[in-house]
Design a binder for these strands. Structure first.
Ligand SMILES: [Mn+2]
Ligand SMILES: [Mn+2]
Ligand SMILES: [Zn+2]
Ligand SMILES: [Zn+2]
Lengths: 146, 146
DNA sequence: CTCTAAACAGAAAAGATTTTCATTAACGGG
DNA sequence: CCCGTTAATGAAAATCTTTTCTGTTTAGAG
């Protein structure tokens, strides 16, 4: 938590109550959120939360690398916070519960070579998103049936 | 060209002049297009092209797998057509000229094993986008200097 | 704690995307 | 071809997202 608040300060953004609430929400639940969902949750804590504020906060956080985005199946943008400190890694997203899992998996070197050989081009970075069913959603639970 | 028009028919969509024009445009230039760019180009051929029509055509094409989408650096959705018939492959996108190159590169098997081992989860599919400078844009051309 | 400068927040407006609906175009069977 | 069926189209409206602008909050100095 401290870590994330410091990033906000380091980027000359102020530690406002709304920003802190957004960080808390995304950290508590490691999953994808739409702008509307974030706003809906903030309404529990604040009497007023303007929609432009929520859009702005999420966009600013993305610009400073504090949160990341992923497209849902219907091409709608959603936000999540990455809890790993490693630079090069990617994410697994559960298509059922929208949870996000950081992965220690990155093939940048191999990709650079491939692109150089095949296209005579330079691979600067890549974006990898893996979608599937997480451990929780994969099998119906015996104890916790609905 | 025939190939793409057949896909349209096979999905119970009609071969309208606007749809054909969109396919032609995306095939002629292998690059990312925004909705506004596509519309601007169509205006050369048609006296009227409603913006909802362009949005609809591109979305429908995406739904039937005829075109694909990619996010630009500022998270704006853009469309391109994939000219390879192979099922599992990904794309290299030039950050300077927006050209798209199909790649014969896919690590689905390796990824499935990794996700099973690390997360006890099931990887159904993944999305990989590689960004860099293509052969044309990598080096300033000697002959064609500006 | 008080004060000031800088940045933030929400309301309203602008801009972008999607939906609705009446008209027009595509397609298949005479 | 001509017609009937079905789907596509654009205008207008609705919805979603971003910008503008002014009052409010934060942060840091004193
Ligand atoms: Mn991560
Ligand atoms: Mn391709
Ligand atoms: Zn899950
Ligand atoms: Zn290029």
């Amino acid at each position: 938590m401290e870590y994330y608040l410091n990033i906000i300060k380091q980027n000359n953004l102020k530690l406002t109550l709304r920003r802190i609430a957004v960080i808390k929400l995304l950290l508590n639940e490691h999953r994808l959120f739409t702008v509307a969902e974030v706003r809906h949750r903030l309404k529990n804590d604040f009497s007023r939360v303007g929609l432009p504020t929520v859009y702005r906060i999420l966009q600013q956080f993305r610009e400073i690398g504090l949160v990341q985005t992923a497209l849902s199946a219907n091409d709608h943008l959603r936000y999540f916070i990455c809890t790993s400190r490693k630079h090069d890694h990617h994410h697994f997203i559960c298509s059922q519960c929208d949870r996000v899992y950081c992965l220690d998996y990155c093939q940048q070197n191999q990709i650079e070579k491939y692109i150089e050989t095949e296209l005579h081009a330079r691979a600067d970075y890549h974006y990898l998103q893996i979608v599937g069913l997480c451990e929780h959603c994969r099998l119906p639970k015996a104890q916790d049936s609905d």
